[in-house]
Design a binder for these strands. Structure first.
Length: 817
RNA sequence: GCCGGGAUGAUGAAAUUGGCAAACAUAACGGACUUAAAAUCCGUCGGCCGCAAGGCCUUGAGGGUUCAAGUCCCUCUCCCGGCACCA
């Protein structure tokens, strides 16, 4: 007899909807638990990655509910973004209509998976009701000087025809379409995330329940490095600031290199014979893609400026060069070159025949003069050729030279970050309009709060070419200056969609809030998110931006905490035959088909059982049969019971039932520990399988006795978070009137776990040789005696006198002879 | 190059954190039921030797610490991920 999953799943999905089973509300009398999964982009269809992500979250939410927590488990849609525009170009569709249709389809699929969302809290970021608050927060940032416009070299994706933030450039390509990113000089809007560098780094230490990998990635991304800015004098008397993390090698600087974009280059070369060559070089470098420019160990391209600088520590006159490997964005865009102790400088010096001088000596490395070096020596050593610092270990010299330079006003200790400000303006239609107006008289003016939202106009022509689509909409662009009321123009760029997801978890706390982005009291109750679940691909995108937003909102008094996500679980990818599922590989397993053939419960169980949540999961068609078989076994157990009144069941005691009771309490303990100790769903499920297997060892008669039924009910309760529909059905068959999710998680009784005897393993010289059963109350000496008295053990000892006998209580005896 | 994470049966994986390696599941094989198949149930299932009792070996490789190592330490190989001419 098999269960009719289709009827059962539809039945319970309707009950949950009608009974508002998952509706959540503030209740100060109960501990809260905010369980959140990263909301999806509404592509229209869910894939296995979604199924896994949301199933994990669903199990946690349901488990915590059964533990008595007041659980908030919301879902929404990250609905702005390019695919809607691309669809608009392709099918002449309206992006909003298209997106909302996709939201609808996707929501239906989520409902079919039986996820326990409080749908009353649903948000879609593309609705004015939501993006109004993006604009609101943007204006607040503008007030604090944290949103600003500047001209700079930006990352440009030629295929998406828009700018990208640094975080959106993955290995030189666009995060969305992988097209090679080029540089472009543009005036764009930025958020000053760098104002939060220190806090973003320091607070990583408080994220005790985040995966190490994510913490490390963020730390590297922030890229704090300590060094010194050294002032080199130019011929015209101006100072050139050079950043280095190796002040200990300053006496080895034999030339200086500037980034081609460096501000002082043009003045330096003016009128010099090298001028034309330099300008050509700058032009050449500007043509290179970022990818080419930073690619590996290609030749170090560069050219001489004809100018010189004075090294302030020894007044040496050294040449100034340009090179493509020096980047304007990092440090000061100017470096001192120490070819003997920096590999890049070494290659450049070899290429262009520049002088070298050794300033760090190491016995181990064994070189005497620069000619002995085949590559730069970057290791530890003792200073030489370094004025008064000779003989100092270089680590110590770093400190000493830095302070010496500060005293002599020729340098200054400083910190540089890899993190850049967040470029947020996009030349696209389907995003939040940046709420700014340009007035010839008043300049850049923020849209007044009372005028929000600045709505996205409808019927905009989208071609994917020719700049911001909004710029072509006259009724949108032409407006009045809020200050002087004269005609003015609106900003036509829209915001990066990562803004939308940087605070949505707060909106879920009070999705209808109308005077502020969210209700402070509700947020105070629910936040921070207790458990956040999503893919690791957002390690330095969404997860960094959200931390930044939270800190800003804390600074303006909207929230009282600094970190949005207490615990983070990054689920592994779902693979097929060891490869990522993708359209181009044609190896996609569609959740829809699996739900049709097996039902949502079986799919959920399989995906949770096949691997721990953090690990990659290789999809296996056969594995799902196993999940199905197990659920059928449980189902048969429950169906075989007469519709009953539990008190009327015979209360018999058999050896089998005694074993089952023991197993039941053991299982409750094991499953609870697996859930508490990091959501080890796979082993939790294997525990439940073992309990069911134990029940199957009973005779059909025994299975109907009270103790067995208690164990069956326990199995249903333990299984409920994983397999919600079927467990609701079985719970009802067991005569229960209320939802299984209004029942409490079972508790185990120590008295059943207490054993009279303990089995001890006996090792002789480190090998297991025998086993003995000893009374639980036996003391060390008794156990030792019993072990030495054991016949098999005595054979192995063969009359020798034990040198050492170690007794590990409740485990083993180790004898050394 | 730097940083992080890995490597256990045919397969996905377990192993109370130093205490009987391979729980649970999948696949495979054998058996029961069946006219037959499916489903279901029972059994075998890391390798080698042995009729058996049993023994020896085994967690990427090598070494070490320990009564005891998949787990700790050192060296190395390979795989995955992030960053990368970051001064």
């Amino acid at each position: 007899m098999e269960f009719d999953f289709k009827t059962i799943e539809e039945k319970w999905q309707k009950v949950w909807k009608d009974d508002l089973t998952y509706k959540s509300a503030v209740d100060p009398s109960r501990p809260k638990y905010y369980c959140l999964e990263m909301f999806p982009y509404p592509s229209g269809r869910i894939h296995m990655g979604h199924v896994r992500n949301y199933t994990i979250g669903d199990v946690i939410a349901r488990y915590k509910t059964m533990q008595g927590y007041n659980v908030l488990h919301p879902m929404g849609f990250d609905a702005f973004g390019q695919p809607a525009e691309n669809a608009a170009i392709k099918n002449q569709s309206d992006p909003e209509e298209w997106t909302l249709k996709c939201v609808d389809w996707m929501k239906k699929e989520m409902l079919r998976m039986g996820f326990s969302y409080d749908w009353d809290r649903e948000v879609s970021t593309c609705l004015p009701d939501y993006y109004k608050w993006n604009q609101w927060i943007f204006l607040k940032m503008m007030e604090k000087g944290l949103a600003y416009k500047k001209a700079s070299y930006v990352n440009w994706c030629p295929s998406c025809a828009t700018t990208l933030a640094n975080e959106e450039v993955i290995q030189g390509g666009c995060w969305r379409c992988h097209t090679t990113v080029v540089e472009k000089e543009l005036e764009q809007w930025y958020l000053k995330i760098t104002a939060y560098s220190d806090r973003l780094l320091d607070d990583l230490g408080s994220l005790k329940n985040w995966p190490q990998a994510v913490l490390t990635m963020q730390k590297n991304w922030l890229g704090k490095s300590y060094g010194v800015e050294i002032y080199f004098k130019l011929e015209n008397g101006q100072l050139l600031r050079v950043f280095t993390t190796r002040p200990d090698t300053i006496f080895g600087a034999t030339y200086v290199v500037l980034a081609p974009e460096h501000a002082c280059v043009k003045e330096l070369v003016r009128g010099k014979p090298q001028e034309k060559e330099v300008l050509d070089f700058i032009e050449e470098v500007s043509q290179e893609s970022r990818m080419e420019r930073v690619a590996g160990d290609v030749k170090k391209k560069g050219c001489f400026t004809g100018a010189f600088a004075i090294n302030p520590v020894n007044s040496e006159k050294i040449s100034i060069w340009l090179a493509d490997y020096v980047l304007m964005e990092y440090g000061t865009g100017a470096i001192m070159a120490v070819p003997t102790h920096d590999q890049r400088d070494f290659l450049f010096a070899k290429e262009h025949g520049l002088p070298m001088r050794i300033v760090i000596q190491s016995q181990a490395a064994g070189y005497q003069s620069p000619e002995d070096l085949s590559e730069a020596y970057e290791g530890e050593g003792v200073l030489v050729n370094s004025g008064g610092f000779d003989g100092l270990p270089n680590e110590e010299a770093k400190q000493r030279i830095a302070s010496w330079m500060e005293e002599g006003l020729i340098g200054k200790s400083c910190v540089h970050w890899r993190l850049r400000d967040w470029l947020i303006s996009r030349q696209r239609y389907w995003g939040t309009p940046i709420p700014v107006i340009y007035c010839d008289k008043c300049g850049v003016v923020g849209v007044p709060y009372e005028d929000l939202p600045v709505r996205l106009p409808k019927n905009v022509e989208i071609s994917g070419e020719g700049g911001s689509p909004l710029a072509k909409v006259r009724e949108f662009v032409e407006t009045k200056c809020p200050k002087c009321k004269k005609p003015a123009r609106r900003e036509t760029d829209t915001m990066a969609t990562f803004i939308d997801s940087s605070w949505y978890f707060l909106r879920f706390c009070s999705p209808g809030a109308g005077t502020e982005p969210f209700d402070k009291a509700e947020a105070k109750y629910w936040m921070p998110v207790d458990q956040y679940i999503g893919g690791i691909e957002h390690a330095v995108l969404h997860l960094l931006y959200s931390r930044f937003f939270t800190k800003f909102l804390s600074d303006i008094g909207l929230v009282g905490f600094n970190e949005p996500f207490d615990k983070l679980l990054t689920q592994g990818m779902v693979l097929k035959d060891g490869e990522v599922m993708s359209k181009s590989r044609g190896n996609i397993v569609d959740p829809d088909g699996i739900i049709k053939d097996y039902g949502a419960d079986t799919l959920r169980l399989f995906i949770l059982f096949a691997a721990p949540p953090e690990a990659e999961l290789d999809w296996n068609d056969k594995g799902i049969d196993g999940a199905w078989r197990f659920l059928s076994r449980v189902w048969r157990l429950v169906s075989a019971l007469p519709a009953h009144d539990r008190s009327a069941l015979p209360e018999e005691h058999t050896e089998g039932l005694r074993v089952v009771m023991e197993k039941m309490h053991e299982t409750i303990k094991k499953v609870t520990q697996d859930m508490e100790g990091g959501f080890k769903f796979n082993t939790a499920i294997s525990g439940i399988i073992e309990l069911v297997n134990e029940l199957y060892k009973l005779s059909p008669q025994e299975q109907k006795y009270q103790a067995a039924v208690e164990a069956i009910e326990t199995a249903v309760l333990l299984l409920a978070p994983f397999v919600p529909h079927l467990c609701e059905e079985m719970w009802q068959m067991l005569g229960r009137k209320e939802s299984v999710f209004r029942s409490r998680w079972p508790k185990y009784d120590e008295k059943y776990l207490f054993k009279k005897d303990v089995e001890y393993v006996i090792q002789v010289n480190g090998k297991v040789r025998s086993k003995i059963i000893v009374d639980i109350h036996a003391v060390q000496d008794d156990i030792k005696k019993a072990a030495l008295a054991d016949i098999k053990t005595r054979e192995w000892i063969a009359g020798a006198i034990p040198k050492k006998v170690i007794v590990v209580m409740n485990k083993l005896v180790s004898i050394v002879v």
